[in-house]
Amino acid sequence: MRMLIVVLLIVLAGCARAPDTTLKPWPPQVAYAPLRHPFKGADLHRDTDSAAMRYRLANGAAWLAPITGRPQARWINGPADLEPLRAVAAQARLQRTLPVLVAYYLPHRGCAKDQGARGEAAYQRYIGRLIRLLGATHAAIIMEPDAVAADCFTRERGTLIAASVRRLAEAGHHVYIDAGHSAWRTTGETAERLLASGIQHAEGFAVNVSNRQTTDDSYRWGRELSSLVGGREFVIDTSRNGLGPPPENEWCNPRRQALGQEPTTEVVAPGLAALLWIKRPGESDGICGGEDTYLFSPRQARLLIDNAESSGVR
């Protein structure tokens, strides 16, 4: 009998032990810089120096207004594109607008051997000049389209991007690393690559650059990804996604494409910083779909505008 009571007491004592549920957080593995929300209440810079505008002026093509009338990003594809920045920076400062620039000069750009900067030093020089030319004008910089999502992504590439992101951020610019699009890599894999590319110093990431996934899909994907990289904000390129992805995700000058939602910084969706036109509508994706250059093509511009009008996208 006494034994039984002892056993019961032991059992009851056992049941009474409460599990330890207090949290004692370890220092986080990744320390994120505070967000600055550069698009909040900002006016997007309207770049008058564009191929579309020049074509419009030269040919009296007023029909190009849906393109030329909207703020778009300016691509810096190499040292040659740097010098004109001085004027853009001065103008933006005067107008108190926020320019959106695209850095697109990474070594092995497009996974091609002869594209982009010749070596890391050359790339660092390019970034240094970019910073110097912008001076006191702070810009939103879309960092290297496709570089993170590309098959040829390596740790070394990530390190180079991270170093550049850091320099740009320290100079006061707002960096959005291009993350690819919703039909490319998984958010898990992309997060891993963004972390290797210094997302913690960037303001966020860019989704759908030069691609045509719908804004809804892009937002869903971006939101999922944002949760994996410390709640960084993201921008969506809506320049040409009015009709959503073309059949089989054809990316190079497809027939089925239209201008998407107008660029705006007045967005209410959590995590989303802005809808931007990063790819300049009308500029060819490459030598395909009846085009034989990467330059502005009135045919592409017409297609985008006409399809947008007939499908009711504004």
């Binding site: 898990g188 972390l195 999922e224």
Partner: peptide, 24 residues
């Protein structure tokens, strides 16, 4: 596919990575 490594312990087959899945 929708998660990120928070911390890793050990390496190789027996190593353990703690993945945090996206809230969304």
């Amino acid at each position: 596919k929708h998660a990120v490594v928070e911390i890793a312990f050990g390496a190789g087959d027996n190593g353990v990575r703690v993945y945090r899945v996206s809230d969304f």
